[in-house]
């Protein structure tokens, strides 16, 4: 890994995003708007919004980073740019970490905006430290980025890449505690939820909403970091200098 190359890739990904206003809006504004929509839906049941609001803060970064990364890295694979980069002094960790840095930075802004809207405008209660909330958002986004990069190896078209959303992301959203609190899920589903990374990101956000104590948040964060590292390793395995 060469810091110069890693950084070049991160800056380049951010430059591409800066030119793509629609994607940038999806990354930064849509999460805030969707949150406002849900607040409106439950305007006469504030307790419901207090329960699902924190979960949303964990779901958005994961969902959109997975989507955006799977498409952009698929383009790199099919457009020949990845192949060209592999004939240059670029290691696969440069590529992987470069992407993670770029989307991690975007995620920090996204988390700050979404939390600002939720707490400032929509009266969501958050008791834990703001810094931790942004940190959970960033790690969660890096997880989405790494998984997106991994699945892009198994798609040939952008249409196929999008199909991984219902297959890999939606089940995690259904089981993470958003719809039914996890301890009220059937036992088998609860066990399945336990091995899904999003569950732990949501759990961290819920702790941040309900208590100022941070022990459980750090434990959850550790679990999400472990999943993110595993996903990055999976992603690295799909990045081959020589392909068939």
């Amino acid at each position: 890994m060469t810091p110069r190359v890693t950084l070049a890739i991160a800056v380049r990904v951010l430059t591409q995003l800066r030119r793509d206003h629609r994607t940038l809006a999806m990354l930064l504004l849509v999460p805030c708007l969707l949150q406002a929509l849900l607040w409106w839906i439950f305007w006469d049941q504030p307790l419901v919004f207090d329960r699902i609001g924190p979960a949303l803060l964990a779901i958005f970064p994961f969902f959109v980073m997975f989507l955006v990364t799977s498409i952009t890295t698929l383009r790199e694979r099919s457009g020949g740019t990845l192949e060209r980069l592999f004939t240059m002094p670029m290691g696969r960790l440069d590529f992987l970490v470069g992407y993670a840095l770029a989307f991690g930075a975007i995620a920090a802004v996204q988390a700050a905006l979404a939390a600002g809207v939720a707490v400032g405008l929509l009266d969501l209660d958050l008791r834990g430290p703001d810094v931790l909330l942004v940190l959970v958002g960033v790690v969660d986004a890096v997880l989405g980025t790494a998984l997106g990069l991994f699945v892009s190896a198994f798609a040939r078209t952008e249409f196929q890449a999008v199909q991984f959303l219902p297959a890999i992301v939606v089940p995690q959203i259904l089981l993470c505690g958003l719809i039914v609190p996890r301890d009220r899920l059937p036992r088998v589903l609860e066990r399945i939820a336990d091995v899904m990374p999003l569950t732990w990101a949501v759990d961290a956000m819920e702790h941040l909403a309900t208590t100022a104590r941070t022990g459980a948040v750090w434990r959850d964060l550790g679990i999400v970091v472990a999943f993110a590292v595993a996903a990055l390793a999976l992603g690295a395995a799909t990045l081959r200098r020589r392909t068939e």
Binding site: R12, T15, Q16, R19, D20, G79, G80, T81, E83, R84
Partner: peptide, 10 residues
């Protein structure tokens, strides 16, 4: 490569 292998959005 056979495709120009540059970034169209840059």
């Amino acid at each position: 490569t056979q495709s120009s292998s540059v970034y169209d959005d840059l």
